[in-house]
Design a protein around this nucleic acid. Structure first.
Length: 486
RNA sequence: CGGGGUAUGGCGCAGUUGGUAGCGCGCUGUGUUUGGGACGCAGAGGUCCUCGGUUCGAGUCCGAGUACCCCGACCA
């Protein structure tokens, strides 16, 4: 039993996570992957990424963005043009010094992100205000040399999308930054069933080279925070570094205002840790590669010949209805083994069809979010599509509700009481408090609680009011969340 | 980059005093099984991380190297 399961969350959440990514067949065992810090994403894990990708891509297109592709290699000098940017990324760059057997005149950096090379292209593509806004997105891999890696959460190479846009005014760029943050939040909540908090990063935590960075912060099953997506208003920093200019209506030359925003394979880690339990993954139906698995049950050829036609008929109905379905036809594995196997993989709904069901025109329907007998019901074969559809919607809502209740029970508002504030964070929960946002205050909290600010939430509970900064005691006008983070 | 550890079949491990390399799982074949993690029988599978040394003889002892893992400082 324990050999086939995962380490319980309560015993060691980190070991639970490491077990689950392998046993749910999302990635190859990281210890066997030949390239340090990089992932082999297996088909089941990649299908999950594809679902995320489709959900986001659809939303980007609907808001006027177009996909393009830029080189993997970026001239080193490009990075150096934006001082803060190169400083931020220098420690984690992979650099190509040789090509075709010869040393390169100028080393190439393997892109850690593409602001620079896209900025360079934008400078050539944009001339007039009529060219604006320019709304681009790229689906790509990027490389950031990491010392300590974990599948999906932090790897040296990861997959993501990076949106890059150019606008005529600060206001337009700011609106775009927040619009994409909204899209990320809407996607996280409605597709991934993860309640997220939208907020602004502190000066210390913002993207290297940005004017302002925004984030969606999610709470994982151990209470820690995970940044699940970011959106940056880059101001004119990159426009000035790369000469992204346009002539306005009155024929005056102006610098553009640019943005960038990204969601990565880390979102998979968020889904695992927001919903998973000791039986394995629990995937939100809207993103699950397999929404329904059918397990046929029979003891001999006679029963098999009675059961399989019903299985095939139900499978065809569900598939024709557009549901993502799999029939587990493996021989020599007991039904019990298969139940556990699909539970490990997080399939939301399991349909069992055995001889008794065939006789009664029924099928057993089990839901992943409620284990055991309570989650199992015998339903009519007639109308199976509607029944399953309804159940999938229930599960989607149930996962979001569970994650929201879990999170809300661990959010605490603290005013003035620094010791309590530190205790909450150290206890693995989130503290919302007045914070002036300065570097020294953040460093003190980091030293005391091993945590930094997650964000200043956009929805401030006391908007327009002020309170005493948790560190300095001086009045300030915004509250911030603090929590241990991934 | 500092501290600790590991390296033996696909995976997890054992291997005594230096003397023919083993167990569990998995895998292949076969028969019985199958409504919550089935079992019997028969098989396949090894450069014991690498290089060097000691020895009649090294998985085991010595030296060097390499790789990986875990814990701390930086990060979508």
């Amino acid at each position: 039993m324990s050999e086939q399961g995962v380490t319980p969350q309560s015993v060691d959440f980190s070991a639970w996570y490491n077990d689950i990514v392998v046993k749910a067949d999302l990635v190859d065992n990281p210890e066997r992957t030949p390239v340090r810090g990089c992932m082999i994403i297996k088909p089941y894990g990649y299908e999950l990424w594809e679902a995320i990708r489709q959900g986001l891509d659809k939303r980007f297109k609907a808001t006027g963005h177009q996909n393009a592709y830029f080189p993997l290699f970026i001239p080193m000098s490009f990075l150096q043009r934006e001082a803060e940017h190169v400083e931020g990324f220098a420690p984690e760059l992979a650099v190509v010094t040789h090509g075709g057997g010869k040393e390169l005149e100028e080393p190439y950096v393997v892109r850690p992100t593409s602001e620079t090379i896209i900025g360079d292209a934008m400078s050539r593509w944009i001339q007039s205000y009529r060219d604006l806004p320019l709304l681009l997105n790229q689906w790509a891999n990027v490389v950031r040399w990491e010392k300590r890696t974990r599948p999906f959460l932090r790897t040296s190479e990861f997959l993501w999308q990076e949106g890059h846009t150019a606008h005529a005014t600060y206001e337009d760029a700011q609106a775009e930054t927040l619009r994409m943050l909204d899209i990320y939040a809407e996607f996280a909540i409605h597709e991934a069933a993860i309640p997220v908090i939208k907020g602004q990063k502190s000066e210390q935590e913002k993207f290297a080279g940005a004017l302002a960075s925004y984030t969606i912060e999610a709470m994982m099953g151990d209470g820690r925070a995970l940044q699940a997506g970011t959106s940056h208003n880059l101001g004119q920093n990159f426009a000035k570094a790369f000469n992204i200019q346009y002539v306005d209506e009155s024929n005056k030359l102006q610098y553009c205002w640019t943005t960038s925003w990204g969601v990565s394979t880390r979102m998979i880690g968020a889904i695992i840790m927001a919903h998973g339990d000791d039986k394995g993954l629990r995937l939100p139906p809207r993103l699950a590669p397999i929404q329904v698995v059918i397990v046929p049950i029979y003891r001999n050829d006679d029963e098999k010949s009675r059961v399989m036609p019903v299985v095939e008929r139900l499978a065809a109905e569900l598939q024709d209805a557009g549901l993502r379905l799999h029939v587990d036809r493996r021989e020599n594995l007991s039904p019990g083994f298969k139940y556990n196997d699909w539970e490990m993989r997080g399939v939301p709904v399991r349909l069992e069809v055995g001889p008794r069901d065939v006789d009664n025109n029924k099928a057993a329907l089990a839901r992943r979010d409620i284990l055991g007998k309570e989650g199992k019901q015998f339903v009519d074969q007639a109308g199976i599509v509607d029944t399953v559809r309804q159940l999938l919607e229930d599960i989607q809502a149930s996962l979001l509700r569970q994650a929201t209740e879990f999170r809300d029970g661990r959010l605490h508002e603290v005013v003035g009481d620094y010791d309590r504030f530190i205790d909450i964070i150290r206890g693995g929960e989130w503290a919302l408090t007045w914070f002036s946002g300065d570097a020294e205050g953040e460093a003190k909290i980091k030293a005391d609680a091993q945590a930094v600010s997650r964000c200043f939430p956009l929805e401030q509970p006391y908007a327009g009011e002020s309170g005493p900064c948790i560190v300095t005691g001086q009045m300030t006008d915004r509250m911030a969340y603090f929590a241990k983070a991934y």
